[in-house]
Design a protein around this nucleic acid. Structure first.
Lengths: 216, 216
DNA sequence: GCTAACTTGTGAACGAATTCACAAGCCTCG
DNA sequence: CGAGGCTTGTGAATTCGTTCACAAGTTAGC
């Protein structure tokens, strides 16, 4: 495998690897801002709570970006990871469900900084529709399909109540969106070509309960 | 391994197993409400997007709760999992950081239903301190140590900006809290006897970006 | 009470992810 | 320019988690 290896030729990458890349990128951007030139796999590992072998293995799936004896060039590695992760472009994000969590997300600056632009917010409640919300007007969910055909959003963030989550996901899928971030504490079913990631706070809290109970 | 096996004697349980238990419990409670008596590992698996062997293996780490030829008693399995997960009691939760996410969490009813009671909310901003917030008055963060000594919270939910997260975690640890749910998009360092779970939305979005870019 | 149909519980086999360990390459200094 | 000190990249070994496959137990029907 060399630096020209294209991803299409590469076997399935583990989710854990992708998540760590995202983590490394955050450190690299931090180092970049502080003007550091190079970084070793060992330093990256220390920051990320992993091992240097793990860091090198993770990167090796995509090419070889370092210099033996020296380490990695901070700006270059940073650029390469952004490229691998598809962060070189802007992603069009819609938020479905204008509740508390939706509100918190819509106002979160971290998204825009990373190239995730919120292009629309939807809800079903008549009293919410039309209200302005952090430079977005809340739209009627009935517009979803029509809007999607035109505006071609890439990612949907699903922040509706559990009961509504599956049926709303079905609509999102039908509208042609291939990536969904779900905040409802339910297990969702979607076709194989649609990626669904879930953030389940209840599950995290219960994991904490488990570890407290069993001497974590 | 029999039904009296205590957890202390059991080897380390995989995080993935614990998370699935939490998932199974949700289905069981659903079945319980609908008055179903028994459930098979196969049905549980179908709901959870896994296999029946996985379900049985997960449960087998803690004992044997089913009846061959019949399946599991819904109320019993439900009770056993709650017991395993430590959900038989109430957990005292504090929220550190009264921003948008903190607000969304404080008002989220799902927590209370599962026995996670918010006993205090803290912030540093003078204009927020003293304000009332969903039956809680926002307290000065300087009270944290004193309050913790008295009120003995079990879990801290950390919803402060990234820059402040590590130093706030250090205070939480010093205050004797052994479980933390972190929402800041940074990797935190904590002693081994403190469990830290992180919810990192930026990372999830970047995983979606990766899968969209690489034909997920 | 015997047979047929089911479903659990669990060792064994398998597969995936992590860690080890070291050859190969790079830099510095004398 | 050669030696010494670093650090990468990667097969091999290991560890960890999942899936297989089947004996053993349960129920229902006849």
């Amino acid at each position: 495998m060399n630096e020209f290896t294209s991803l299409a030729t590469v076997k399935r990458i583990a989710d854990s690897t992708v998540r760590r890349l995202s983590l490394y990128l955050r450190f690299l951007e931090d180092f970049e801002q502080r003007g550091l030139e190079t970084i070793s796999s060992d330093e990256l590992a220390r920051r990320g709570g992993t091992t240097s072998a793990q860091v090198r293995k993770d990167l090796s799936f995509f090419g070889s970006f370092g210099k033996r004896g020296l380490g990695y060039s901070v700006p270059e590695l940073s650029r390469r990871i952004r490229e691998i992760m598809g962060l070189g472009r802007e992603w069009r994000v819609i938020i479905v469900g204008a509740g508390k969590i939706g509100a918190a997300l819509a106002q979160y600056q971290g998204f825009v900084q990373r190239g995730f632009h919120i292009v629309a917010v939807y809800d079903t409640a008549p009293e919410k529709i039309g209200r302005s919300w952090n430079s977005q007007t809340i739209r009627d969910i009935r517009q979803l399909e029509r809007d999607a055909a035109q505006e071609k959003p890439d990612i949907a963030v699903l922040t509706v109540p559990s009961e509504a989550a599956q049926s709303m996901l079905d609509r999102i899928v039908k509208a042609g969106i291939k990536a969904v971030l779900n905040f409802a504490p339910v297990q969702l079913q979607a076709p194989a070509d649609v990626t669904v990631k879930s953030v389940n706070m209840a599950m995290e809290l219960e994991s904490l309960s488990f570890s407290l109970t069993n001497h974590g």
